[in-house]
């Protein structure tokens, strides 16, 4: 017993060195492949994600930051999620959570303007460009309703997918969507929002 152990110990450094080196190479290769995969995902997804983020916050700088946060969070969990069936929907979910978070943080820090509700109910000026009016009207809605409208009517996601992204039931998406559309119509005029 003792003899074999000394023998093994004598030859161990080399053998171990070879193993560690091989393990290191394999690990690096795996990591490179993973990074390449992630980079391809970012390149394919970033433009759409940034536009969706912009419609949610109406600020291109912030939209860029939110996109960045989304990708960082996804990379942190990449090993677990890379084979998920719908990475696209998953990225929307992470983004929307970042949007809600950011919004909550800001509204905690800011004073709420007392006359905001009135302003929101006022019919918008006809001279304002329609898409500008739309963004203003959108901003007056609750943030989750905005998310439903943007995901449904800009991204064209199905009711089921939206429900999954926002972690609510299908019927909630349906009723909230209908209600949000009604509010947009009230704000912008009847045939303004025809879907």
């Amino acid at each position: 017993m003792a003899d074999t152990r000394t023998d093994a110990a004598g030859s161990l450094p080399d053998a171990r060195h070879g193993l560690v080196a091989r393990w290191g190479v394999a690990r690096r290769r795996e990591q490179t492949a993973r990074q390449a995969e992630f980079t391809a995902f970012v390149e394919a997804t970033a433009p759409r994600l940034r536009r969706t983020a912009y419609l949610m916050c109406r600020d291109w700088h912030l939209a860029q930051d939110l996109t960045q946060i989304t990708f960082a969070k996804m990379y942190a969990a990449w090993g677990r999620i890379r084979h998920a069936t719908n990475l696209e929907a998953y990225s929307r979910r992470v983004l929307m959570n970042a949007v809600f978070d950011q919004k909550k943080r800001r509204s905690d820090a800011e004073l709420v303007l007392a006359d905001l509700p009135e302003a929101a109910h006022r019919r918008l000026d006809d001279t304002v460009e329609l898409h500008v009016a739309l963004l203003q009207a959108l901003a007056a809605l609750p943030i989750r309703d905005q998310a439903i409208l943007v995901l449904r009517h800009w991204e064209d996601q199905s009711v089921e997918t939206v429900a999954g992204i926002l972690n609510v039931s299908v019927s909630v998406v349906k009723t909230q969507n209908a209600r949000a559309l009604n509010r947009l119509r009230a704000l912008l005029g009847e045939d303004f929002v025809r879907t």
Partner: peptide, 20 residues
């Protein structure tokens, strides 16, 4: 007026700056 929401969203995005 025959505007639909998607078209308006697209127009709102028309001034998208180059990504940094």
């Amino acid at each position: 007026m025959d505007q639909n929401l998607r078209l308006l969203f697209a127009r709102a995005l028309a001034d998208e700056p180059e990504p940094p």
